[in-house]
Design a protein around this nucleic acid. Structure first.
Length: 234
DNA sequence: CTTCCGATCTTCT
DNA sequence: GAAGATCGGAAGC
């Protein structure tokens, strides 16, 4: 029964930069009345709590991020851009507020249901390629904010995953997607090299139109670059 | 394939 | 009042 038990609290109760790469290859599984959908993780990002300018917890506890300050192994779900839900797994001891954003994966169970939920996906690899797409594929929303992913009785759990752990030769790390400011350069995004489900790299964008009176000097400050820009081996 | 841009609304300043 | 841990469609190569 080993592989059906969720990863235990101890797994998450470590420094977030240890937990994040260890989550690659693990399986997030949600069982709804419609059936189960499971995703094998290929891409995650670490957010290091109050010391991380890129983290929702950087300016301390608020109603939204309260779950991040709680026990490890619980799920932090937030709403963003007026329409998307994203899910994290809380790490470290209570009070530390670190978490891992679940960014992308491969649907390994319930693909038919995932395709119904992700009707705009034109291929299997797009079903959970991106943090908001992944929550749609799984059927996860606000109702799971604060849920305990280590509870075997929960309908949302993280399982160890089948087979051997991915080799370190395939693990990559680089800057996080869409993170602006001081935290932009930290190489705290982890992914599995060669996986088609890894989401495209996007630097943070400013939505402000350029000021017409200030010329045309790269108003967004946005460098161009390929998906795995800044990648290094561990 | 890539780049550009609008949608949409909660959250915190 | 502005920004945001994004996505999908349209247009360009």
């Amino acid at each position: 029964m080993g592989t059906t038990d969720p990863l235990p609290r101890d797994f998450y109760d470590r420094p977030v930069l240890e937990v994040a790469p260890d989550l690659i290859g693990r399986v997030v599984r949600h069982t709804s009345p419609e059936g189960p959908v499971a995703v094998r993780l290929t891409e995650v990002e670490a957010y290091a709590g109050e010391r991380d300018p890129g983290s929702h917890a950087f300016r301390g506890r608020t109603p939204r991020n309260a779950v991040m300050f709680g026990p490890a192994g619980h799920v932090y779900v937030y709403f963003t851009y007026g329409m998307h839900w994203c899910m994290n797994l809380v790490c470290g001891p209570p009070g530390q507020a670190s978490a891992v954003l679940v960014r992308a994966g491969e649907v390994v169970e319930g693909e038919d249901l995932a395709r119904v939920r992700r009707a705009t996906a034109r291929s299997a690899r797009e079903l959970a390629r991106g943090p908001a797409r992944l929550t749609v594929a799984l059927g996860v929303g606000r109702q799971y904010d604060g849920a305990d992913a280590t509870d075997a009785a929960s309908s949302l759990v993280v399982l160890p995953g089948d087979g051997p752990r991915p080799g370190p030769d395939r693990l990559r790390r680089g800057p996080r997607v869409g993170v602006a400011g001081e935290g932009a350069a930290a190489p705290w995004r982890f992914w599995l090299d060669g996986e088609p489900t890894v989401s495209a790299y996007r630097p943070a964008v400013s939505r402000r139109r350029p000021d017409p009176s200030s010329g045309r000097l790269d108003p967004t400050g946005r460098p161009a670059g390929p998906d795995q820009r800044g990648a290094t081996s561990p």
